[in-house]
Design a binder for these strands. Structure first.
Length: 423
RNA sequence: GGAGAGGUGGCAGAGUGGUCGAAUGCGCGCGCUUGGAAAGCGCGUAUACCGCAAGGUAUCGGGGGUUCGAAUCCCCCCCUCUCCGCCA
C-alpha cells in the first residue's frame, strides 16, 4: 500500500508510477473516495465528541432526575445520527481501502521504461551458454528421466504437476535444498522453518488476497492457504510489530515446499520441471533500514547469484522494466539460468525491493532511535533458489555422452557421488 | 474432541455500566540529590487516524449486539493455560 499522504500531496508522482508500470487505474476515483471519506470522518468525530461531553455531564447528574431524563432524550437523537453516519463511514472506509490497494508501488528511478518482457534490460551474463550444449536435450527427453522424476505416478496419486522424485532424483533435490540452506546461512541469513499453511489475514497482509485467491490451495475445514512461497509466512513473522532499530538489518532464509494452482497456465512453459503445482524453494528475506535498502538489494542479488556460480551454471541477470516488474515492487532483478536442452533461460530467482510498500500493509516497523517514533522498515526478498528449474538446468547442461549427469563439485559433498544416473 | 480458567499499556497487575487511555508496582527517559554512584524525591513514558492549527476521534484478543453511555452486560470467533480423551 502507498502512503496516503503521498497520494494527497503528490498525486502526479502516483500518476507517473501507474504510467510507468503500464497499469490502468482510475486515480481520480481514488482521490474522490479519499476526499469523501475524510469529510464524513470529520462529521462523525464531531458527533462522537458531543456524545463524550454529554456522557461526562450525565455522570455528574443524579440518575432519574428531570435533567438526566431530558439529557437521555436529547442524546438518543445524537446516538441515532451517529449510528446512521457510522454505517456510511464504514462503507466509505472499505471503499477507500480497496481503492488504495489498487495503487501500485512507485518504481525506482533506475527502473527502465518498458511494457513487455522484451523491454527488460540484461544487466549481466555469467558463463557461456554455448559451451554447455554438447549432448543437451530437454530434460524430459533424457533416457530414464521418468524413473527419477515420475510425473505419471504423481498424476495418479494427486494430479498433474505433482511429481514423485525417486532415487537420484530425490537425492539431488535434497542435496540442492541443503546446499542452498548452508550457503545462505553462511552468508548471514538465519535459517527458519515456517508453517506451510497461513491464515487469511497473513495471505492478505502480503497481497495474495484478494488478488490471487484462485492461485492458492485452500483447506476446507480451517480456511488455511497452502503457501505459494516462504515469503508469505516469513514476511508475516513481524507483522504488526515494532522492532528495535538495532535489530536491523534482519536476514532470514527458509526452505519450504511451495504450492501454486497456476490456473490459466498453458503451453510449453509447463513441460517437465518448468512449472509445477508443488515445488521446493529456498527463500531469502531482508528487513532493513530504509536508507540501506538498495544497497541490500544488490547484496541479496549477489547472494543468489553466488549459488548459481558455485553450481557452474550459466545465467543472466535481468533488470525488470516498469511494465513487467509487478505491482508491489519498487525494483526487481530476475536471475535466469541457461537450460541447454531447451535452449532457453529459466527464471530461478526474483530479487525485489518493496521499500515500505509491503511493510505498510503488514505494519512492520522499527523504532527510530533518535526520534523515538516508529517508522516502516523496507522489505526485500528473493529466491535462493527455486529447486526444480535448477535441477532441470543441471540435467540438461551436465548430461554426459554416457547418459549420466555430472554433479558440480560444490554439490558433490551433498549428493554423495560425482554422477547422477537414471536408474 | 470434552470440561474448566483466562486474554487489560514494554512487563506484572487493579478495574463488573458513566468523570477510564485506564489505579498501582516494575522497567525505561529526564531532572534534583551526590566527589561519583545507589537509594530517595519530582516529572515524563502507547499506537493510529482526521485537522493549517487549536484540537478532536479511535483502540482494554477479534467481530457483532444491548444502552443516552461498554474494558465492564449479551452473542459468535481466535488464542493461551489446566485436566480428560485421542494421536505422530
Amino acid at each position: 500500500m502507498l502512503d496516503p499522504k503521498l497520494l494527497r500531496d503528490n498525486p502526479d508522482v502516483v500518476r507517473a508510477a501507474i504510467a510507468k508500470k503500464h497499469m490502468d487505474v482510475d486515480l481520480d476515483a481514488v482521490l474522490a473516495v479519499d476526499t469523501a471519506w475524510r469529510a464524513l470522518l470529520g462529521e462523525v468525530e464531531q458527533l462522537r465528541a458531543k456524545q463524550k461531553a454529554a456522557n461526562n455531564e450525565m455522570a455528574a447528574l443524579k440518575k432519574g432526575s428531570p435533567e438526566f431524563i431530558a439529557k437521555v432524550q436529547e442524546m438518543k437523537a445524537v446516538s441515532a445520527e451517529v449510528k446512521a453516519k457510522e454505517e456510511g463511514l464504514k462503507g466509505l472506509e472499505e471503499k477507500w481501502h480497496h481503492a488504495m490497494l489498487t495503487l501500485p508501488n512507485i518504481p525506482h528511478a533506475s527502473v527502465p521504461e518498458g511494457r513487455t518482457p522484451e523491454d527488460n534490460r540484461v544487466h549481466a551474463t555469467h558463463g557461456d551458454p554455448a559451451a554447455t550444449s554438447a549432448h543437451a536435450m530437454p530434460h524430459w527427453e533424457i533416457a530414464g528421466f521418468d524413473r527419477i522424476i515420475d510425473f505419471t505416478r504423481g498424476a495418479k496419486v494427486t494430479g498433474a504437476g505433482f511429481p514423485f522424485y525417486v532415487g537420484d532424483g530425490a537425492r539431488l533435490v535434497r542435496a540442492l535444498i541443503q546446499f542452498f540452506l548452508n550457503e545462505n546461512s553462511a552468508a548471514g541469513y538465519t535459517e527458519v522453518n515456517p508453517p506451510i499453511f497461513v491464515n487469511a489475514t497473513s495471505a492478505t497482509a502480503v497481497g495474495q488476497l484478494p488478488d490471487k485467491e484462485g492461485q492458492m490451495y485452500q483447506t476446507v475445514e480451517d480456511n488455511f492457504y497452502a503457501i505459494p512461497t516462504a515469503e508469505t509466512p516469513l514476511t508475516n513473522f513481524f507483522r504488526d510489530e515494532i522492532v528495535d532499530e538495532e535489530a536491523l538489518p534482519i536476514f532470514r532464509c527458509a526452505y519450504t515446499p511451495c504450492f501454486r494452482r497456476e490456473a490459466g497456465s498453458y503451453g510449453k512453459d509447463v513441460r517437465g520441471l518448468n512449472r509445477l503445482h508443488q515445488f521446493d524453494k529456498v527463500e531469502l528475506l531482508k528487513w532493513v533500514h530504509p536508507s540501506r535498502s538498495y544497497e541490500e538489494l544488490d547484496n541479496l542479488r549477489h547472494d543468489a547469484e553466488r549459488l548459481l556460480q558455485k553450481l557452474d551454471l550459466p545465467y543472466r541477470v535481468l533488470l525488470m522494466c516498469g511494465g513487467d516488474m509487478g505491482f508491489a515492487q519498487a525494483k526487481k532483478y530476475d536471475l535466469e539460468v541457461w537450460a541447454a536442452g531447451q535452449k532457453r533461460w529459466l527464471e530461478v530467482s526474483s530479487c525485489s525491493n518493496f521499500e515500505a510498500f509491503q511493510a505498510r500493509r503488514a505494519q512492520i516497523r522499527f523504532r527510530n532511535k533518535e526520534t523515538g517514533k516508529p517508522e516502516l522498515v523496507h522489505t526485500l526478498n528473493g529466491s535462493g533458489l527455486a529447486v526444480p528449474r535448477v535441477l532441470a538446468a543441471l540435467l540438461e547442461n551436465n548430461l554426459q555422452a554416457d547418459g549420466r549427469v555430472k554433479i558440480p563439485a560444490a554439490l558433490v559433498p551433498y549428493f554423495g557421488k560425482d554422477f547422477l544416473t537414471f536408474k
